[in-house]
Simulated assay, not measured.
Amino acid sequence: MSTHHAERIISLAPHITEMLFAIGAGQQVVAVDKASDYPTQAKDLPKVANYRSLNMEQLLALEPDLVVVWGSAQQQMVQPLAQLGIPIFYSDPATFAKLNEELNQLGALTGHASQAAEVAARYQQQIDELTQAYQDASPVTVFYQIASTPLMSANASTWMGQAINLCGGINIMADSPAPYPQLSPEQVLAHNPQVIMAKSTEELAHWQQWPALRAVENQHLLTIDAQLMHRFTPRTPQGIRQLCSQLDKARSD
């Protein structure tokens, strides 16, 4: 009995595009969303969606036999596709273990099970090594700044929150009821974290106006690679490793 594998796949989020290419299914991807820019081959594919909307006509003309969407963000947007009977896979890797699972699920759907298993195993090995390396690290308090206007952070349930925890950091916004809380500078000042992290030095610059803040006083305004930390893909362990080594700077001072 032959198993049918998807041959015409549309990806609607950058982390999905990256996962499909990583497991060897890149050749089967016929279109992506506007934000998919890695690997470079993805840039040349037709763009049928952005974060909020879908070009239904263009998408249907490509006759996909699988559409992979970001579950928590795009579920409503793709309801009409589901009603037309187009197969949909909802990707929503909320934890480190879930990404491993999804890589294998996508491998099965696309006919790349063995390559997906290899990618998943390599990813898991890196996560396990980092977990081991930092399990006894001395705690460092961290404010993780996702955006500056409005000022936004991440709670413990997010990937960034889980990464901070893995690296032995104590996320000052860990207990926020919102995954990505908006807050005021005063809230950060009240916590007086040892480290403030953001994706660029420009985003960190405005903290300099509070020289008594521990992170400013000790020059622990540190940057991370947002592409590696804000997209949940097999490359994420590189971002976590970078985050851990940035926290090590605060430990060694």
Rank of each mutant, 00 (worst) to 15 (best):
113 A>G: 09
120 A>V: 08
106 L>R: 09
112 H>C: 12
123 Y>S: 03
105 Q>S: 14
110 T>C: 07
110 T>H: 04
95 T>Y: 08
108 A>T: 08
102 E>C: 02
120 A>Y: 04
91 S>M: 02
103 L>W: 11
119 V>I: 14
105 Q>I: 12
119 V>D: 00
126 Q>K: 15
101 E>G: 07
103 L>F: 12
98 K>A: 14
106 L>I: 08
123 Y>G: 01
97 A>K: 14
117 A>C: 00
95 T>G: 01
110 T>Q: 06
93 P>A: 11
103 L>Y: 04
107 G>M: 04
113 A>R: 10
119 V>K: 08
92 D>V: 04
90 Y>D: 00
110 T>N: 09
98 K>V: 14
104 N>A: 09
116 A>E: 10
125 Q>I: 12
117 A>Q: 14
102 E>Q: 15
95 T>Q: 10
88 I>P: 01
107 G>E: 05
117 A>P: 02
111 G>E: 12
97 A>P: 03
93 P>W: 05
110 T>A: 06
121 A>W: 09
106 L>A: 05
95 T>C: 03
105 Q>W: 05
122 R>P: 01
98 K>I: 12
110 T>Y: 03
96 F>E: 07
94 A>P: 00
100 N>E: 15
101 E>L: 10
123 Y>H: 08
98 K>F: 06
126 Q>S: 12
101 E>S: 13
114 S>T: 06
102 E>M: 13
